[in-house]
Computed example of a mutant assay.
Amino acid sequence: MEMLASLHTLPSPLPPTTTSSSSEPSYKTPFITRRRAIISASTAAIASLLHISNPIPSLYPSIALQPQQVELDQEEDRIVRLFQETSPSVVFIEDLELAKIPKSSSKGDRDVVAEDEDAKVEGTGSGFIWDKFGHIVTNYHVVDKLATDQSGLQSCKVLLADASGTSFYKEGKIVGIDPAYDLAVLKVDVEGYELKPIVVGTSRDLRVGQSCFAIGNPFGYENTLTTGVVSGLGREIPSPNGRAIRGAIQTDAAINAGNSGGPLIDSYGHVIGVNTATFTRKGTGISSGVNFAIPIDTVVRTVPYLIVYGTPYSNRFQ
């Protein structure tokens, strides 16, 4: 009704006309014209309304997509923040073979192993900062050559970052190993630096299907993030000494050569495992998507003994 009331005022009726057959005024023709005008104006108004309202249904798909887009943006932002907060606690490890035994520096520490131009990189791996004292957790198989070296020509170079994000190299020295669980602890001199230890979580409450993320250095590409889910629990994988590691976490988050020793984290950025092994496609060396991590509960039980005694608890009295 309001829309019809807003139409232009119709003109007044035309003066009466007469015909030769009658002297009485006739309003027939003007009445028809007025009626047609009203109908025409009403039709135009309705058509105008329909024209205005037609685009509205076409907006529904875009309106419906907006919450999905917002949700997607929020999820991406969460993963970006997760990586930014966790990656400073992840280190890059290079296993080196030196051409000659280096001279000890005045501090008794070969800080800059990179100065030896003849040093040969025999392998790379990952690890994560355990505490502010410079202890680093990694896999035993990442540093096994250094652990068994009798020549003095093996060395380990660690690239890490302090709390401010400044990267620096240090020599890593082994303080403890546990081949049965494929774990090792390195120590670097962090005098003058403030480290950001990783946040330790738990693996006892994990559920198949929950999200997980791996951070490491596959094929030497530093600070690489891969995403996936917990694919299985309670798996059994071989250890470097031939025994079985029980209770391993299976994930489809990509793990390749160089990821070993890096953290597997949950959606809160808490470490739930140490990335250790992957099945590769035959003849390709490419991950098949079946990857494994040592559960963090096992790591928490083992690492303190490695730091204090250099060997796991099971070996203390042997």
Rank of each mutant, 00 (worst) to 15 (best):
V143P: 00
E171L: 10
T86L: 13
V90W: 07
S155K: 07
L98G: 01
D95P: 00
E76H: 15
R78Y: 12
I101K: 12
L146V: 12
E94F: 09
E71F: 05
L82R: 09
V142G: 01
S104D: 10
S89F: 07
H141M: 02
S155M: 10
S155Q: 03
K157V: 05
K173V: 10
E75H: 15
V90L: 04
A147N: 04
E94G: 02
V121W: 10
K157P: 00
F133W: 14
D131V: 08
A99F: 08
E122A: 13
L153E: 03
S164N: 06
K132I: 11
D116C: 12
C156H: 03
F133V: 12
S167A: 11
V90H: 10
A161R: 11
S155I: 03
P88Q: 07
S167V: 03
H135T: 07
D95N: 14
R78C: 09
K170L: 05
A161T: 11
K173Q: 10
R81N: 15
E117Q: 15
Q150F: 02
E117K: 14
S105K: 00
E85D: 15
P102K: 04
I129S: 01
K132R: 13
F128V: 04
D109A: 08
E117H: 02
E115R: 14
E117V: 14
P88W: 08
S155C: 10
V91M: 06
E75A: 15
E117N: 13
V158T: 02
G172C: 04
L153P: 01
F128Q: 01
V90D: 03
S89D: 11
Q150W: 09
V137N: 00
F168Q: 04
D118C: 06
S106I: 02
Q84E: 15
E85N: 15
V143L: 03
Y169V: 02
V112P: 01
D116W: 07
L82Q: 05
L98C: 02
P102Q: 07
V112Y: 09
D144V: 05
K145V: 01
K170P: 02
L72Y: 10
V143I: 15
I129D: 06
D118Y: 11
L98A: 01
A99T: 08
Q74F: 11
I136D: 00
E71P: 00
E171R: 10
G134D: 14
N139D: 09
L153M: 08
L72E: 09
K145Y: 00
Q84F: 12
S164V: 12
S89E: 08
D144K: 11
P102A: 10
G108N: 05
S87I: 15
G127T: 06
A161L: 08
Y169T: 08
F128K: 01
P102D: 04
E76L: 09
A147H: 06
D131F: 15
T86N: 07
D118K: 15
E71D: 12
I101P: 00
R78P: 05
F133G: 10
V175W: 05
L146P: 00
K173T: 15
S89V: 12
L96T: 02
G108R: 03
R78Q: 14
D73C: 03
V80W: 13
L159E: 00
Q150R: 09
Q68L: 13
V70G: 02
L98V: 04
A161Q: 14
V121G: 05
D144E: 13
E115C: 03
A114F: 05
G123C: 06
T166H: 12
S106N: 04
K145L: 03
